[in-house]
Design a protein around this nucleic acid. Structure first.
Lengths: 162, 162
DNA sequence: CGCTCACCCACGAAAACCCATTGTATCCCA
DNA sequence: TGGGATACAATGGGTTTTCGTGGGTGAGCG
């Protein structure tokens, strides 16, 4: 699997009183080059206290991956159960949200809570997907590399100084 | 991995009041021969106080490498976390910037600070990638070979004498 | 009837674009 | 071989477009 277009870069955007957020233009560009949907899929990240996001085309790809995994390790007795569990997580625990002509989504309340997003959303490209963080939470997490924390600090400063 | 076209040579260009810099034409030539993008990817260099730069095709190649690494050493419990950290550094801590028809980019403020670039940018080809230095910083670094410092001195003189 | 969400418009700042100038290297031809 | 014409690179400045953001309005639904 080699996706042609990758998510990269960072941005810190505001969540307004209505719960709306602008998806950074450079991420939207990748989404629309991968497929023609103007939509993102949100999920709780499996390792970090943040959200994982991607485009519908990638979701389909992920599904195909799971299918292949099932066929491969169908030997064990738990294989079937694991497959069901994975499918639940991959599809039931996610939300698909379209963004409007100005590039904004309405943040689903459940996801906003799961990601503990306040009134600032930090977007981080990670190649196949991107992440959405509460910047304060990122700065407090021991597992996040210092270089990445520097980004969060810079983006916060950039905004505060104005 | 053997890239056909390599970055080589040096140049000293000005960063103007708007934060724009010309990417030397001989580097642009390599970028456009490697792929058809008119874009460079900027990252903090992992060892030197300068920036590392390359084309999107090289970034994709780097990503494929990480993917293979994951599938191979998925045995250890830390493998998953390390993969996440690597991805963050490789994609969140980098910025992709397009250059215009005259070959200029707008230097992203965050990268400019990370590379401590003032109003002069020294470009050095290093094969698969190239580097962007503050020339004064390069002259002060003990690890940089004298021959390379001579290049920097020559480029500075060339500019000062005019 | 009240609430929410999908549109619509509006504004300021920033980025992308276009055009003009300069200097330098290259080419051509006498 | 010299000298002029030419092409391209680097740079400065102005103008237009895009982006992020705030606020309003009306349709749909409980």
């Amino acid at each position: 699997m080699a996706l042609e277009h990758l998510f990269q870069g960072s941005a810190l955007n505001a969540v307004d009183a209505k719960g709306r957020v602008s998806i950074p233009a450079f991420l939207r560009g990748v989404i629309e080059r991968r497929g023609d949907a103007r939509t993102i899929v949100l999920a709780k990240h499996e390792a970090f206290p943040c959200l994982s996001a991607y485009d519908p085309a990638y979701a389909a790809l992920k599904h195909a991956k799971l299918e292949r995994l099932l066929e491969k390790e169908e030997t064990g007795p738990d294989a079937q159960l694991e497959y069901q569990q994975r499918n639940l997580i991959a599809f039931a625990a996610t939300e698909e949200v379209p963004y409007d002509s100005s590039g904004r989504i309405l943040f689903p309340p459940m996801m906003r809570r799961k990601g503990q997003i306040g009134d600032l959303a930090l977007f981080l490209g990670t190649g196949e997907t991107f992440q959405i963080w509460n910047p304060e939470l990122l700065l407090r997490d021991d597992r996040v590399p210092d270089d990445v924390k520097d980004i969060a600090r810079f983006r916060l400063e950039e905004r505060g100084a104005s």
